[in-house]
Every structure is written in C-alpha cells, then in structure tokens.
Nucleic acid binder design. Structure first.
Lengths: 334, 334
DNA sequence: TTGTACGCGTTATCAC
DNA sequence: GTGATAACGCGTACAA
C-alpha cells in the first residue's frame, strides 16, 4: 500500500481512505490511486486489516458429520449467505467426538473468527466459555445444549417424530420399533419423546425391547435393527431416528430375508435425493435443511453487523419438518 | 503477551521463546510462564503471528459442489489431515460456476491462505495467475485444467468408464447410451473418451443419438435420459457419468414405465452408501474419494513444509476407480 | 539467558 | 481533502 501511495504521489492515509471509502477523496485522486493500484499489482492484505480492526470477516462453522447429506445442504446455504456478505467460512468437523470438537473450537478461536455456527457433539467447557464470554456470537444448529443461552436454529423434533410414528400407527401397526440416536443429544431425546407421545396417543403400551440404540453410523444401526428383527415377536414397523441408522435398518431387513414394506414398514429421519428413486421409495421426515442454514446465518449476521443487536437475549428458532409418505411405510393391498 | 511477561516477571522475548520453543528457556522459567499464561488467560493471537510470519496455517479448499457425496468424503479426508498438521480449512463452493469460483479464489487469496486445493469449475485468469505466480502452492483435484502446470490428484477416468461400458457390452448390450457431463471439464472429456474406446473394442458403431448431455444436476440428467428412452430404437443399457445424472436417469426410467434391469441396464459414476441398499442395487464406478483427499493434502503439505519441495516440478497422481457390479446392470435370468 | 527496539500492512486520529 | 503518525500483537535481531 505504501508502494501505491508512492506511485500515485499521495500519502498512505489517502490511499487507505480511497480503498475503504472511510473518508471522502476527490475523484481525481481516486482515479490516480486506482491506476497506481493496478500498476503496482496491489492486493489488500486482510491479515493486517484484521490485526488493526480486530475482525476477520470469517465465521467458524462446526458440524458433527460433514458426510451427512443433512449437514451438507445446511453448510451450503450458510456458505452462500456468508460469502454474499463478505464473510469467509472456516469449516470444522467433529465426527461426533466432543474432544475433537473442543480442539477445533480452539483452532477457530485462535484464528479469531467473528462468529460461530455449531452443531455440537456434546457440551464442552470450551463451548460454554465461548457463549458465556459473550465476546463472539454463537449460533447453535440442529442440537440444543442444556443450559447454553444463545441463539439457535432447530426443528421441532418431538412433533416430527410424533407425526411419523402416528402415521405408522394409523396404518394399523401396533408393534412399532424405534432406533434412536444418542440420548446425550437434544435431537435424540426429543425424537424419543415424540415416539412415546405417539404411542400414548394411539393407546399402545411402551415396550423397552422395541427400542434399539444406534450411537454412531450405519453399522450401529444395522446391529440395532438386526436385534429388533430377531425378536420372537418382532415389530411390524420401525422408525429410524437418522439417515445413517436408516441405511443400517434397510440393510438388516434385506439380510434377514424380509421385504419392505410387505413384511415390515419403515420410515426414517432425513430425506435425501435418492429416497424417491429406488424401491421401496422411502418414507422420510424431511428437515428444512436449507432454511436452517439461512436462518442460522441471518441470526449471526444480525449480531455481527449491528452492535446493538449483540445485547439482545438469545433467540431460538424452531422450524417444522415435513413427513413425506412414500412406499416404505405403506403395506400394499393384497 | 506483554501481560504474561509482566505477571511472570520476565521479558517479552522470553515468553515468546517459551511459547514457540524458538530458543532454549530454563525449566523453572517455563513453569512460571505457563502459570502466568493460565492466570492472565492468554491466547496466542494467530492474526498478529500471521502478519509477522507471512503464513496463516490455513488452506483454501475450493470444490464445485459441496452437496455431492463424492466431494464430501474428499473434503472430510482433507480436513482431517489438515487439522492434524495444524492447518485450518477455509471452504468455498463454486456451484460449478466459474464466476463464483474466481470470486472465491480472490477471497481466499486476500485471506492469505498458505495453499490451495481446487476442483475447478473451469479455467479462470485468477486460477492461472495463482499457479503461474508460484507464490502459493495449488493442488488440483478431480479435474485437470488444460495447460495448468501444477500438482494434481485425479482418477483414470478413461479406464474407469471403459471398464464400465465394457461390462455392459460383455453382458450382450449393443445399444449402449451415455449421459455425459460437461465437456469443458476434463472429467467429462475423459469419460466420453472411455465410452468411445469401449465401443470400439466391442466392435459397436458409435451413434451420436445415443449420447445425451447433462450439464448440471439431476433435472438435466432426467431430461437427457427421457430423450434417450423415447428413441424409437432405444438403448438397452445406459451409463451415467455422475451420480446426479444417475438420479435423473433412474427417475426417468421409472416415469417411462420401464424396469431396471429387466428393460434397461444401468451403471453410473460415483458410489454412495445407499447404492447397495435399495432395489435395484446400483452398479457403480466407485472413486477412491478418501484417497484423493489424502493424496492431495499430502502433496500440498510437502510444498508447505519443505522449502526445497516448492521448486519441484508438478506431480500428477492418477488413482484408479473400481467398478462395483451389482443388480442394475445385470439382466436377471428368465 | 534477558531486555529493547523495530517491522509486518493496515486503519484511525488528529492536525493542516 | 489531505497528510503525518500512533497504534494493533507478535517475532526477532542485537546488545547486554
């Protein structure tokens, strides 16, 4: 920049003012300066600017599983919006591991990101300190964390699961199995609660044996499903609480020599492109993945751009998910 | 840091030396300093360090479509390795749009990332300048860019497509359709070439009418497929050059009232979790997505860590993809 | 080993 | 409208 100033025959301060529009500069000088910029091949150094201004125009995005199509669409929406507002996105993935999460949170804090969007894999001191410190805005997505008072965008998991299980019950199923996710996550707890509510509504007694738990991934889902399917009095319908356990469930059904939906009805959380293409076409709970990302980024942008908004009390946005009934949950007429 | 020095009763330089290990510091002092660090709540300011050292410990990762499971696994591998080596990852997504790509490339350059990994949506002056400038190492993934002499990790698309189409031909198909991607991409051209080679091998005449083009996404794939299927003398097998057009293809087959593989055999590029679960189980060309990410990051790390390695000539790593034959390409015995 | 002074590229605050 | 100058927080060379 000092080179530009020299080349244009003006002072450093004037160049800065011209580049940032922070002070009025005469048109003539502006022209000379911009010409000099091109001549010298000057590029603004964001690092130096950050050091001075204390802002990096970068946000930290922390998700639990980047491989999951659910997060993928959300990430995409966040990025789009962030870039439109001049923010870069530094992405980290905890792989559902709280220890990794705290490491990455530290990495992001060191890099002085201006704000965080996080789908937490579990409460950590780092996350709590971040929120309670109040220096950097944090928006939670997908999962709430107990006692963390900060902005968040989640869906109504209780209602979503209740709807899905109610749909199964309405189709005449009385033995409805559940494959839950981790109970340490708010999503896991809420979806479990939705299941129980739907059973109660339908006057079906809760049976612990019909609830399997898949903490991680498709393999866990497979095992949990296989166990349910090997029950003497096996369920006639199963709801899987995320798309990974849904994969495991479908594989287990296939391996057990059963057919879906003829022998067993299936519905699961999280819709994806292929769900509507293959057989059986899968009944899913579709989350508004895009809207989650957009909302989260909007909340964050408010806190970032507007100094007065930083003092606002935490806002929790709860979006609705949509049940998409397809073939897998509906027994064909005989 | 100056506060830490005060609290520990030592000089600034000693603190810096203790933190960075750049000079020997007595154990006693080290203890005192670390205690002071905790007391003051000192966090190293990466911005200031970057300004001084000229490195940011951050790499820029630019992909064409973050929603695509193919990229997703690769991104994951890159991140994992990057974090292990103390690098942050700034992610950008061009949405297959060259203009967006140049914007994001500029954003990343402004942020002074230490290196780039890029799946380019098309050649841009920015990308070329970056590579030719030689100041920041660039590793291309998935797609080569004509005339860009830099490190790259790609797969052998010609062989992969040839294998797949050869498999179709070996099953007795003589009218084999193709749904290509964008010809401006090296992947599109190479896969097309593999198709032609396989036909020639099998002594099948090339028919332009059997080649559909899907530039973007599943909808384009649907249209291209629908056109092929409506041909008077329609193909008995179709190969789709990516997973998005594969979705479109399967949907088109369904909507045309045809069954796969009974009426039409299908294979497509890119494997994914669900391919093996639903019916028809899809025959795919599985890319070594994880290995692509690992290799790319390793190449980049070499250039980053080792000053002498920066002068090395460009290295192109070509990995092999694997044909996974499942049900969709095999006509059941009657 | 330690202290000091300087520079990295900007921006902000003054004076002119 | 414009120019000089002091920070921002850290690394480092050099002198003690």
């Amino acid at each position: 920049m000092v080179d530009v100033a020299k080349a244009a025959g003006v002072s450093l301060a004037t160049v800065s003012a011209a580049v940032n529009g922070s002070a009025p500069v005469s048109a003539a000088l502006k022209g000379r300066i911009h010409k000099a910029i091109r001549q010298v091949g000057y590029k603004t150094n964001a690092i130096a600017r950050s050091l001075k201004t204390g802002t990096t125009s970068t946000i930290g995005l922390m998700v639990a599983d980047i491989t999951n199509p659910f997060f993928t669409t959300t990430i995409h929406a966040i990025q789009e919006l962030a870039h439109r507002h001049g923010y870069g996105v530094m992405l980290c993935c905890s792989d559902e591991d709280a220890d990794k999460e705290r490491m990455h949170l530290r990495l992001l804090a060191d890099r002085m990101v201006d704000g965080f969007i996080v789908a937490s894999a579990g409460e950590t001191p780092e996350l709590r300190a971040l929120v309670e410190g109040g220096r950097t805005p944090v928006v939670l997505i997908d999962r709430l964390v107990d006692g963390l008072e900060t902005d968040a965008v989640v869906i109504d998991n209780v209602a979503a699961t209740r709807d899905a299980v109610r749909h199964l019950a309405a189709a005449g199923h009385r033995r409805i199995g559940l494959i839950t996710g981790r109970r340490t996550l708010s999503t896991g707890r809420e979806r479990y609660e939705g299941y129980r509510q739907a059973l109660e509504e339908a006057g079906i007694a809760f049976e612990p044996a019909l609830v399997g738990s898949a903490r991680f991934g498709a393999d866990d889902g497979y095992k949990a499903a296989a166990k349910l399917l090997s029950l003497a009095d096996r369920p006639t319908a199963i709801f899987a609480c995320n798309n990974l356990s849904g994969i495991g469930l479908m594989r287990a059904i296939h391996d057990a020599g059963l057919r879906c939906p003829d022998d067993i009805a299936v519905a699961c959380f999280d819709d994806f492109d292929w769900a509507n293409v293959f057989h059986p076409r899968l009944t899913t709970v579709a989350q508004p993945t895009q809207a989650i990302g957009v909302q989260a980024m909007l909340l964050l942008l408010e806190r970032l751009k507007d100094a007065t908004a930083r003092a606002l009390p935490p806002r929790v946005v709860r979006l609705k998910a949509e049940l998409r009934v397809r073939d897998s949950s509906v027994r064909p007429a005989r």
